[in-house]
Nucleic acid binder design. Structure first.
Lengths: 356, 356
DNA sequence: ATATGTTGTGAGACCGGTCTCTTTATATCA
DNA sequence: TGATATAAAGAGACCGGTCTCACAACATAT
């Protein structure tokens, strides 16, 4: 059995037609499930197809119909639980509507994102879900629209783009988390994100190119301001991109003359890194430092103490994005919207009550 | 700007050719980067292409070349860290060789796996990496071979199939873990897996349809037998498919008159569920029960105590599978092999020394 | 001068489906 | 019975690339 010895030209409708002694058009009607064919002929064709083990060439089908049945997804990093959960939601929505998903990683880099988008458009995906790495560089996203491919942004919104976006209610989530910390008596709060940054510190919120992070920082700052706390940006730190960087960020934060008593982690990866940093510094949570992380990741519920988190309902976000995109693909008339999936604070044990 | 108002027939080589005042063939040569064209004409065509924002239709390209540049991956569950890490490895290998990856979830169900395979073959993927849900039902895998599509099995081998497989050294890994437990004085050991099963108990190893699990159980049993322990299958439990089921499995195990003192979790999801079960039963690790989990998942290093694990090097497995598949696609002459990626036991704190 | 080779370009078939248009066979009605 | 409607099947263009082949123009060899 020299199974895959020769590339083996695959069985086509023409082959089936010949075997069934009908025209190519008729065989195609049966195999493609369109038009109208008598029962007798249908049986003949089906029998021939089965005998020859015919498998339709979706490529050819896509080319003539102009629809590929694929939706493209460009995410920052599939390995991040946030994205893998989202992809799961998107995939489920897609499968339900008969679409498939092709995933590309941008690594949160603009160039990689650009080429991923180009590639997926080249593959003639029916629609695209993109997590834009930066909200200030959107030429390639305009290209998508101009190519006539429906687009839905995920996790981050770009108002200038006039396109649907599915995000969390990042501002409110940050506000809730920050208020909780303040309510527990904390007065020096730090916000730590993995976003690449030059200095690590931050002087101008407007310059954060990731809208989700920006809105969270805005919420964070607004609560601090409202509480009359001075210098709200002082403890906002970016650049916690890996364990080593995070160790540095945390060490610097905590060696401040007035060290923060609570840390807010921008995502579960950062949260995990912070947790490990604190562990290696021999600090105990929440006795020495309190923390809250975004995303209800695996690890947050099995640590001691379990981590208080902002539940982002990422699966729902993904599903919603998928459904929205499919609605667009199917030309459902809808206004362009920013869909916010509400979050909730899940209180566990990582926040201490301090002060009186 | 009614951007995506009309489907907008996309720009083709013919359009570019007309704009550049050359033949379609010549334009195609320039745009496709093949054949030979004078510098002057090349510039003309490139200019026209840029002006029209030409993007090649990969679908059409694939159809005439017969290669799609896509490799298909069918995994059990992307949400499982094991698979998402593997997918990352596969993707990296693919990208390096200029391939893209399309992922399908089988949910470990045979029917879903079958249709995923059919679908991907329909999309004319250049090769396929499959994690077969069952090793005893392989008609659809034979189909793949007969269709002339290169195939690499992942995580599970099927000797009858005569096809490359990348797996861990499951038998040895289980042996090492089990020996460690025995070395620490444990005499009653349980093995818990998420595999679906009728009874939950197990009488015949040969009937485990997942080769990875089967080999691990074989290793586990062989060590127990070699140590002269009675009834080695007694504590092998399947069916820990969700938290509720796992709670039941663990409760039943531990209420045995001679309850096991150590648990071996077949994967990190099962491990996490077991950890939570023990937590909710108020049992302490390793004082009351010891445990070892497969896979160096996030959570295993931040629990108290941190969990002793079998490091499976899944990223490497994925990468290797990707590379192997690409070698096959490129017709590199290679013997059919089973590639085993070695594992190692990472000792942490979840195993107690008992007895004297 | 003619034969031979090389290089650049054009014409058109082809991949495997879909789909429109035409033709043929059968049913319905006056 | 002939006219008309309708259902079923066939012929062939088309999608947007690739690629083979033919051919023209010019260079080199004989």
């Amino acid at each position: 059995m020299e199974d895959s010895a020769h590339p083996k030209r695959s069985v086509t409708v023409a082959d089936v037609a010949k075997a069934a002694k009908v025209s190519k058009a008729t065989a195609a009607r049966v195999l493609g499930g369109y038009g109208v064919v008598s029962a007798k002929i249908t049986d003949q064709v089906m029998a021939a197809a089965a005998a020859l083990e015919y498998r339709p060439n979706e490529l050819a089908r896509s080319m003539s119909t102009g629809r590929s049945g694929i939706i493209g997804v460009v995410v920052g990093d599939i390995e991040n639980a946030f994205f893998s959960l989202a992809v799961r939601g998107i995939s489920d929505a897609a499968r339900l509507a008969g679409f498939n998903v092709i995933i590309a990683n941008s690594g949160e880099e603009l160039d990689a994102e650009r080429s991923a988008v180009d590639l997926l458009i080249g593959k003639r995906v029916d629609g695209l879900i993109v997590t834009p790495a930066r909200c200030d560089s959107i030429d390639h996203l305009h290209h998508i629209r101009r190519a006539g491919v429906p687009l839905v942004l995920f996790d981050r919104a770009i108002p200038e783009l006039d396109v649907d976006a599915v995000t969390g209610d990042d501002r409110d989530a940050a506000i809730a988390a920050t208020r909780h910390l303040i309510g527990q008596g904390h007065r020096r709060l730090a916000y730590v994100s993995a976003m690449d940054a030059e200095g690590g510190g931050l002087t101008d919120i407007g310059r954060i190119s990731n809208s989700a992070v920006r809105e969270r920082v805005e919420g964070f700052v607004s609560v601090l301001t409202e509480a009359g706390l001075p210098n709200p940006l002082h403890y906002v730190r970016l650049g916690a991109t890996d364990q080593h960087q995070t160790d540095g960020v945390i060490k610097r934060l905590l060696s401040d003359s007035a060290a923060p008593t609570a840390l807010l982690a921008s995502d579960s990866l950062v949260g995990l890194r912070i947790f490990k940093s604190l562990q290696s510094l021999g600090l105990s949570i929440p006795k020495d430092v309190s923390m809250i992380s975004f995303l209800d990741a695996d690890w947050t519920s099995v640590t001691v103490p379990p981590i208080t988190i902002v539940d982002q309902r990422v699966y729902e976000m993904g599903k919603l994005a998928g459904e929205r995109l499919i609605a667009r693909i199917e030309r459902t008339p809808l206004a362009v919207e920013r869909l916010r999936v509400s979050t909730s604070l899940v209180l566990r044990g990582s926040v201490a009550t301090i002060g009186r």
